[in-house]
Nucleic acid binder design. Sequence first.
DNA 1: GATGAATGAGGCTTCATTCAT
DNA 2: CATGAATGAAGCCTCATTCAT
Lengths: 226, 226, 226, 226
Amino acid sequence: MVTDVRRRKDEERKERTRALLLEAAATVFARQGYHPTLISEIVEEAGVGQGTFYRHFPDKRAIFGALFDHLVDQVVAEISRIAEDLPSDAEQYREVSVRVVAATARLLRSNRALVQLFLAEGPSVDRDFGARLDSIYEQLALLAKGYLDHAVEHGFARPCHSYLVGQMLVGAGLRLMQVYFDGHLDDIGVEGSVREAVDLAFFGFGPRRTDAGPSVSTRTARRRRQ
Amino acid sequence: MVTDVRRRKDEERKERTRALLLEAAATVFARQGYHPTLISEIVEEAGVGQGTFYRHFPDKRAIFGALFDHLVDQVVAEISRIAEDLPSDAEQYREVSVRVVAATARLLRSNRALVQLFLAEGPSVDRDFGARLDSIYEQLALLAKGYLDHAVEHGFARPCHSYLVGQMLVGAGLRLMQVYFDGHLDDIGVEGSVREAVDLAFFGFGPRRTDAGPSVSTRTARRRRQ
Amino acid sequence: MVTDVRRRKDEERKERTRALLLEAAATVFARQGYHPTLISEIVEEAGVGQGTFYRHFPDKRAIFGALFDHLVDQVVAEISRIAEDLPSDAEQYREVSVRVVAATARLLRSNRALVQLFLAEGPSVDRDFGARLDSIYEQLALLAKGYLDHAVEHGFARPCHSYLVGQMLVGAGLRLMQVYFDGHLDDIGVEGSVREAVDLAFFGFGPRRTDAGPSVSTRTARRRRQ
Amino acid sequence: MVTDVRRRKDEERKERTRALLLEAAATVFARQGYHPTLISEIVEEAGVGQGTFYRHFPDKRAIFGALFDHLVDQVVAEISRIAEDLPSDAEQYREVSVRVVAATARLLRSNRALVQLFLAEGPSVDRDFGARLDSIYEQLALLAKGYLDHAVEHGFARPCHSYLVGQMLVGAGLRLMQVYFDGHLDDIGVEGSVREAVDLAFFGFGPRRTDAGPSVSTRTARRRRQ
DNA sequence: GATGAATGAGGCTTCATTCAT
DNA sequence: CATGAATGAAGCCTCATTCAT
């Protein structure tokens, strides 16, 4: 009995220490980047002993990976929760897009420092880690391609090289996120940015036509800004 | 004078050694990435002594920077050469876009390894270096914005948040390049990819309209692929 | 608490290691001089790892300085202990001088190797370190000047340029010490040397006069030698 | 014939280069001390090529030694020139002493930087070099001892441990020189300092006696200073 | 003889990792 | 489990020295 209590207390303590280390690592990585960060800086930030680190992670890479996995799990869960069903007409399609993208954006924004860290330094941590990132981008692109193919099939998107378009949308989205994080889109906010982005994806920037086009609300919002 | 001849020969030798080092650095960086690369590996690849490195560059960062500057200079020169005048109608606009983008793509492709290196590892080399990259993206986005504003003014682009759109185009382009480098667009080649990309930018992927749309040639090319 | 015990043991261990390093450094410095000594030789002599050195001292200079400070502290404490009160007549004055000088000599002799090290190599270690030595000489000279001025005032020393005389006494003392360390004064020992030195200071080597002069005991000692 | 002219020109050039190097070395050594000085700094100061150094000296030690030898030769020559004959009475003895010491002082002062360099850094350059310095001090001490023994024999010095006294005089002299170089004796100048020093040596600082004592001129000078 | 680019041995220092407590 | 002192492998960099011109 005593042993059980003891064991549980030990485990709790261990868990707490691990959390301390993860948080500290996130802080220090965000502050100075992956490569310049020393184990000694992480443990100092965490307020634990040097040796303690190695009871929880084999090396720096591992704690970086743990942070990454945690974030990816969160994001995947969130996205799956929202984007459950395929849309059945163009307008609905756009609305779903806006909703998914905006939700993702909000989630990522709340982990801004880590996201920027992974985007910027991920590829340099490790060949392997770079591949993980690439695979995520690829999956996103394929997801977009799937949606697009479905849309083309139902006539609310024009035929195109959907894989290429999917990749470009991913790239545009990533860049958009960066810019947004840097505070360069504070004038229109998440919602506005997303709507503008979705408009670009649907209609391009070519001259407006009468039969369809950017939603009135968007145009209004834009006008208000000016 | 004997001295003059001597001096010139010395300078030539030095220049040759420097070139040797730069080439070697490019090779090794491309092979294993910036951080894992040791000075000793660069000098071995170059076939010069360890100390020789330090007669030419103060440290690893510097030689990386030199490679970067060299590439940027090349690209800037090439782009300036092509994109001299602003287009005066929509069709011309698209043609100029295609020409500039395709030329840039070809130039970058011939420096593929370095470009990938800079894109992937640049932000992790240094706070400062990351800022240099960012500034380049920003400049590109502003360039795009400028063109776009001009197009809107002349009626061959619809009103939009041109800064945001510019940034997205940059992101889309970067991603496109990556994908292209990875050989995932070998089916349509540079020309085809660029045309597809420009179409996306001009018209989005929304349903085709009658009054305007992707060029016939493109549609043809696409059909052939399918 | 377990933690407390642990902490104390750790501190003790650290202190022991530090002492080990200091002793080793003294040994190696004395053997081969400051500049030719490598950190690797110190740690080998101390029987600790290379990295351990840097946990205790930032560089070679620092450990040299630590040795120096330690010795100076010792000497200062010893001298202050002896030379507490000013003498009130000529004979007493000489006796105090003899006592102070002899005590210092004995202390320095027991640290002979270090003292020689500091005298010989101190000025070459560092601009700053040289200045520290100079300042000590200056202080000694001023101390001597103070005593001398006091003596002149009370009539048991003749008027003179007391600063210059103080400096010369310091120089004479330093040289005496060197010679003594080299074993060139083994015939008369510390006591005899000091007495002879004090006689020189008080009476010079000019012809003996009847009213005062070197003490009988000294003359006797000298005669015995001859 | 042509060859001869050529040969002489080469030799002259070589000599000039060597002189350039020596002068440069003196300058740089004086500025930053022996150990921190790099060969590259010497050749830069001299305005010659790196390789040129090695055509004239095998290493840094050698050029230091050459500077030293040159100075010693000068000083020895100068002293021998003055102190040719032994004095025959006390007053003459003092006058010779003053003359020799003052002349030496003037010579050394004109090479102040080098002298300070040798005194301060000599012992640290090399075991061997330190021994050379020591030997010089020893020789000086023996010289003084010889004079002293001669004086004792003729009754114008009191019996004493002449070797020890000789050494102390050397030490006092060295210190005096340092202090003088540092400008701390500007109030009485070379002549005054020397006279004061000689007085100390002859009479000590003990109370003045009637039958003999410091020269009137000195006392006067001193009084004027006060 | 003079030059200065190239060399590489060798010392310093860092820092991930271990281990005794 | 947590600790932090100790470790030493490994890289960086310097600088005396060489050597082709």
